[in-house]
Simulated scan of single mutants.
Amino acid sequence: MAIQNPTRAEIGDILKRSKTIAVVGLSDNPDRTSYMVSKAMQDAGYRIIPVNPNAEYILGEKSYKVLTDIQEHVDIVNVFRRSEHLMGVAEEFVQIDADVYWAQLGLADEAAYEFLREKGYTVIMDRCIKVEHALTK
């Protein structure tokens, strides 16, 4: 099965109803794409929860080593890890029962996509959350 993302209108609805985004692979380096995208989403009003085992705080928020350390509900898990890591993140995602699994632009894994879709989750891959937010405002 090929990866089929929700329509732009559906993505807009997801972004409108979401408040909390856990960002797996969020760098504490302001020059990195993950930081810039997450900062833009934070500036747009979203709560960012960093997932980075090597940082204590990023963007003023406590950083977690792994997704399963997060004790509150997460609307979107935004992934900035190489495609070969998407399945591992998907397995953690299921354990926290977040609403939407989002792999950033350039990242896709059909096996992870199918694994999550079979469980009824919304999955978006190979799309930039910042770009989609700007396009669906």
Rank of each mutant, 00 (worst) to 15 (best):
R82V: 13
D69A: 06
V66H: 14
V123H: 04
L86A: 08
P53F: 03
E91C: 07
N78P: 12
V89D: 01
Q95L: 15
G60M: 02
Y64A: 03
L105G: 00
F93K: 09
A111K: 15
E56Y: 05
R127L: 02
R127I: 02
D99M: 01
D97I: 02
Q104L: 02
Q71G: 11
K65R: 15
E56N: 13
Y113M: 03
V66R: 14
V79Q: 10
D97K: 15
E118N: 15
R81Y: 07
S63Q: 08
Q42T: 10
H85Y: 15
D75H: 13
A103M: 00
G88W: 08
R117A: 08
I48V: 13
K65Y: 00
V94R: 09
E114V: 14
F80G: 08
V77H: 02
I124Q: 04
K65L: 00
W102C: 00
Q104K: 02
K65H: 12
D75E: 12
Y46W: 10
Y46A: 11
E84W: 11
D75T: 10
R127E: 05
Y101W: 03
I76R: 07
V79T: 10
Y57R: 15
G45C: 09
L116Y: 05
P53G: 12
I76P: 10
E92T: 12
Y46S: 11
A55L: 04
G120N: 08
Q104F: 03
L59T: 10
